[in-house]
């Protein structure tokens, strides 16, 4: 690949839109060409800068309110009118009122699952905090046999530390963090210039497992799952597909003997 090709394909490469052969050719060229590598780093920096939450515009509350059905507006109508109506009407109105009053609660509960997940918010905040200077790692090592023992005595459980360098997600280190009201192990992996934080902490039930769930916040993807009694939460700004691939590799690794 020459520099003209590299220039043409750089953005598709950064966006993970090249096929494996193209990606490999690009990486090889970047290894050998200082100019293209510098250009690549500039665009990585620009890409990171565009992740700043301040750039994403959120819908104003008034607009959201207008488009959210108002189930409670009918409620006052359904309140029993005083004394002029027969008792049966009052009872019926009371029943209808109870239904109507219960509806927003029901919908609020349904929506909470989709939009207002505190844990996801907390994880994204923690991920952002970890990206500030000096916050990312307490133990810096690409070796799982260094990172895992570091947690001994610092946590009341032994986190599983998997080596995923072969899959393109080298381990960078670990640190203690707090999530969901408890101390958790935070493992830092990298995908090119992106950082992936993986949080691990024990589930309440020993053998608990739960299917993988995906959420997005401010351009960050959050994946959660529970395997063999351990909660996992991975958060990153990498492409969601890459994060899913990472999670699949991690789960495979943690399930086999690789986790030490």
């Amino acid at each position: 690949m020459n520099c003209d090709d590299a220039r043409r394909l750089l953005h598709a490469y950064l966006d993970d839109e090249l096929d494996a052969a193209g990606s490999a050719a690009m990486a090889a060229h970047l290894d050998g060409c200082a100019d293209c590598a510098a250009r690549c780093r500039e665009h990585e920096r620009l890409h990171q800068a565009l992740k700043q939450p301040g750039l994403y515009r959120r819908a104003p509350a008034a607009l959201r309110e207008r488009w959210t059905p108002r189930r409670d507006t009918d409620a006052p109508v359904a309140q029993p009118a005083p004394s002029r109506r027969p008792l049966a009407w009052a009872a019926a109105a009371g029943f209808a009122g109870a239904l109507l009053l219960a509806m927003p609660l029901y919908h609020a509960m349904q929506q909470r699952g989709a939009t207002a997940d505190v844990l996801v918010d907390e994880a994204v905040s923690s991920h952002l905090r970890s990206l500030q200077p000096q916050h990312l790692m307490d133990v810096v090592s690409t070796d799982q046999h260094t990172v895992k023992p570091w947690f001994d005595g610092r946590l009341d459980f032994a986190p599983r530390v998997v080596d995923l360098a072969g899959a393109g997600f080298p381990l960078a280190g670990g640190r203690l963090d707090a999530l969901d009201g408890r101390s958790v192990a935070a493992l830092v992996y990298r995908r090119r210039l992106h950082v992936i934080n993986v949080y691990e902490w024990p589930a309440a039930a020993a053998g608990a497992s739960a299917a993988q769930r995906e959420s997005r916040r401010n351009g960050y993807t959050v994946l959660r799952w529970t395997d063999a009694g351990m909660h996992y939460l991975a958060v990153s700004d990498v492409d969601p597909a890459a994060l899913r691939e990472f999670a699949a590799d991690l789960r495979r690794g943690a399930g086999t003997g690789d986790a030490r």
């Binding site: 994403y56 515009r57 959120r58 819908a59 104003p60 607009l63 959201r64 488009w67 959210t68 989709a114 939009t115």
Partner: peptide, 12 residues
Amino acid sequence: LPWLDAAWNLAR
């Protein structure tokens, strides 16, 4: 409705 923020972000 869950994509109202996305709609607003693009429109804005």
